[in-house]
Design a protein around this nucleic acid. Structure first.
Lengths: 265, 265
DNA sequence: CTTAGTAGTTCCGCCCTGTGGAATCTATCG
DNA sequence: CGATAGATTCCACAGGGCGGAACTACTAAG
């Protein structure tokens, strides 16, 4: 429904991925259920599932189809496409440990934030916002940290594409207000999220830069009653700044010497 | 090359995934490089990349295309499609810690073994065989543990499909020898890999069963000089058996009450 | 044992749409 | 500025993706 068949994209490919998305949402599902949901002929659905199954991107158990484990490989490939992403992982673990809260590494792709690493500290918050999850950039600390260090024109494109939907009571929904906020983030070097994404949830983030561009952001999130005062405003941010600083050094150094281990299929 | 366009699969979908695979192998690549490699017209390649980019499964940075981070989500969906998979994770972590070696949770899909969790102990072996990696079942301890507890006919299908290629000097390449080995594994409850997959690398694994069927296997792998004697033959296996036992209980109990958290797109 | 019903699979002809070649546009470099 | 390489757009053709209908495989009910 939200899917746009914009210009003239290849229909067949779109349909295949629609089926994959249906499987992702439905879990194990029968052929007829998928065909129904997508308004496709059963014969068509069958051919797609057959093809995807041959490719091992769909598994079937009896008459239930489900997403294939081969996607684990592609997911991993995405998660490691930039060596910097892997370097962030230990820092996230350390931040989760030090703060006891949830620590995350978020990257921008197609104008959205994607969680690439998530580590839950001792006083873990509920699971759910796991790896691979997508969020709007304007309503999260990590997103604002990234936007603040992206060229203005790129920010405009993103806002044009995704808008500024309200997710919680404090979400910034006004463009100019967001620009002001980003200016503050740039000055301060740290972004804050005060119940802008989910009511009752605060967060703070710092950008990780390479060659002036933000490659991602380190973030810490937790319940607003626990993330307050100096701890929230100063102590956690300084831990993150230290981590980001160290990470940036690694990233810049390794940027050429990296031997991205060859993936053989 | 190894890709077969078997029966009459949908060509367009195949092509789209071939492009994705090319990106997975090449990393950031130009349009022309992809078109060349796959023998496609540039216009065709362009349309596919356009479509995949609209879907956010491909990203572009200037004139370099690369795999999109949205795959992280699908990868995650695959990794959690069965709640049992997530339950295995803490056990893998514990095994890695206890043994100091590399611990893995492997599952079968389409006749191949897929690493779903990998944790490296203190005296870590080289990275590389990470999450999402695929291996033949006949040449790994985990694979043999799984095969040993699968119906004979299913084993036959798998061997028909994938054969028994030699990966290392000790790889079992004879069908009957493998059946004998599986019998031994069944009796013993533990599978061993003595440099059958990679020279210099040993491993041992135990199945994780649910309703009699193997849903996966817990495995420990390390250099053959370190994995020897009682430690290899008895001590590590008993740790694994204990873990598997506990895991199986969780898995069987939770099998119905599970509320697979709903994924909203 | 038969019959009806449900779900999956195969078949088939239509015509939509995916395809490659050529033309156009864009950027980089000599 | 030309010249080249690469990306993008345009276009006509026919290959192949599509849905409807026929067929098969199971189950359940009578």
């Amino acid at each position: 429904m939200a899917d746009r068949n914009d210009t003239d994209a290849i229909q067949t490919t779109n349909t295949s991925f629609e089926i994959i998305h249906a499987l992702q949402e439905l879990g194990p599902a029968r052929l007829s259920a998928i065909a129904d949901r997508l308004g496709l002929a059963e014969s068509t659905t069958h051919r797609h599932l057959q093809t995807l199954s041959d490719l091992r991107y769909v598994s079937r158990d009896g008459d239930r189809y489900q997403i294939g484990l081969r996607f684990a490989r592609l997911g991993r490939a995405a998660q490691t496409r930039d060596p910097a992403y892997e370097m962030a992982k230990p820092h996230i673990q350390e931040l989760a440990e030090e703060t006891g809260e949830r620590a995350q590494f978020v990257v921008e792709d197609h104008g959205l934030g994607i969680y690439l690493h998530v580590e839950t500290g001792s006083r873990a918050v509920r699971v759910g916002f796991g790896v691979g999850r997508q969020i709007h950039l304007h309503s999260s600390s990590a997103g604002k940290a990234i936007l603040a260090h992206s060229p203005r024109e790129h920010v405009d494109d993103i806002l044009d594409q995704w808008g500024l939907p309200a997710h919680a009571t404090n979400t910034i929904t006004d463009r100019d207000a967001l620009y002001d906020e980003l200016e503050t983030v740039r000055e301060r070097g740290v972004a804050f999220n005060r119940e802008e994404h989910v009511d009752g949830l605060n967060g703070t983030a710092v950008p990780v830069k390479r060659d002036g561009r933000a490659v991602g952001a380190l973030a810490v999130a937790g319940p607003s009653h626990r993330l307050t005062g100096e701890w929230f405003e100063d102590e956690v941010p300084s831990m993150m700044l230290a981590a980001a600083n160290e990470l940036e050094l690694n990233v810049t150094y390794a940027s050429d010497a990296s031997a991205t281990d060859h993936i053989v299929e």
